[in-house]
Design a binder for these strands. Structure first.
Lengths: 248, 248
DNA sequence: GAATTAATTAGACGACTGACCAATTAGCTT
DNA sequence: AAGCTAATTGGTCAGTCGTCTAATTAATTC
């Protein structure tokens, strides 16, 4: 007889479900498998989560709140800072870091994969998980990027945001493949390194954009719109480890 | 009675399968659904493709060969050109264009989504479709980027390649979401525009990298390793429509 | 310590799954 | 016109699916 502890039982089910769903998708797993690997009776899943989709949603909700909270609190305190003003690197860092660091925690990789899988699922729209849980974050970060880069056209900010997320998701998802292709040149194991690479690349792209919001409007200073003086110098305000690879 | 035409029947099955698989994944679809939407008897699927996975693989093989061929032929003729030498933009363009243009053809979006889905599937390793069909392309393009950017460290090239693919896949996959979030600021409908944005962004990032392969080795000309003189000026060799947005 | 409630068990339901088979039909060759 | 083979049909197979119900057990309350 199992010890009667509802919370523990739910946790066991959620853990097993998270693993199974992230490994084989919502349709690739049966509730019987989940129940078995959780060491729990099949009917307990229905008892606690009603349906299979209910369980699936519960897996998401368990983890999404802490991450979202960390992300937005990080971003808000960052954007509130006046001196020195927040940099592009810092905004992108606040966007990538919670994901990457979650990956390195126990079970975190599973959840990262689960999110990537849900994002890639054409049926996700009907579930609305992405829309409800991730859209608010997207809006907030896009808004922050627009504030940090006031002269960049809106469209470019949006494009960059989605390229960034896509790149991050793929890298977190296809770790083995990237290592295989790169001959271990890319160091996927250390999250700090991943953050450094992706933040660096996208910050560079944004900084060196030739486009400006209104082509002729504010053309007084910095006429070609590249290498904005004020955004460039705050590189010194970067995070600890980000410096170690800034050769010369 | 159906007209007896084996090729046509196979095509009908493959078309229906491509649609269903891309919409709901390999586990989200039953062979009966595919047979029904193809207007074909269930047993004909087994007859032509043996198993469900056999059908799945056939869907990939039907389309991957033309794309791979187009991509590599484009890339090879590009890399063979001496004067002017190939640019980063052109290499990235040859990488993105076949995908984007396929999307705009009949049924192409379905296949694009199918690939994204397979790439995101944790079980894809066991099938080996990505490894067999996409790894060769990846190696070739990474090699080309290394040739075009001889002073960039290998790792940066690799990272950039994967970020590029990830960004491209996500954008092609989540078209509706991006339009929703951007308030129609991003124009996903025109493939040319998508290519322009992603190629521009990543080329900018690569061009403005501060890193060099061997910090002090080949430091004769272009000592700071940024804004390579020769790569910068060939911007005029860019593709037709790429110019239309190069404001000022 | 009996009553009440929450947690857990065991089992069954109809529906659906992929695979397979033998029988039948149409088109081609000779 | 007959023979042969490829193409197509209708149906069956053993399993598995998610969900539900009724019975049983443990913990809590009065």
């Amino acid at each position: 007889m199992r010890a009667r502890n509802a919370e523990l039982t739910k946790e066991r089910i959620l853990n097993a479900a998270e693993r199974s769903f992230s490994e084989r998708g919502i349709d690739g797993v049966s509730l019987r498998e989940i129940a078995a690997s959780a060491g729990v009776q099949l009917a307990l899943i229905s008892y606690y989560f009603r349906t299979k989709e209910g369980l699936y949603r519960a897996v998401f909700h368990r983890r999404i709140d802490p991450i979202s909270a960390e992300r937005t609190s990080k971003l808000r305190s960052l954007m509130a800072r006046k001196n020195p003003p927040p940099t592009v690197e810092e905004v992108l860092d606040a966007l990538a870091r919670p994901w990457v660091e979650l990956r390195d925690k126990r079970g975190g990789l599973l959840y990262t994969r689960l999110i990537a899988r849900e994002v890639g699922d054409p049926r996700e729209a009907s579930r609305g998980i992405v829309r409800d849980l991730l859209d608010p974050i997207a809006r907030e970060f896009i808004g922050a990027l627009e504030k940090v880069l006031p002269n960049h056209p809106k469209s470019e900010i949006h494009w960059t945001y989605h390229f960034f997320i896509g790149g991050l998701l793929l890298v977190l998802l296809k770790q083995e493949r990237i290592e295989r292709l790169s001959g271990r040149v890319c160091d996927l194991a250390h999250g700090e390194h991943v953050i450094e690479e992706i933040v660096g690349l996208f910050a560079r792209a944004l900084r060196n954009s030739q486009k400006t919001k209104k082509p002729a409007a504010r053309a007084s200073r910095n006429p070609r719109g590249r290498k904005g003086d004020e955004t460039r110098n705050v590189l010194s305000a970067r995070r600890k480890s980000a410096q170690r690879r800034a050769d010369r």
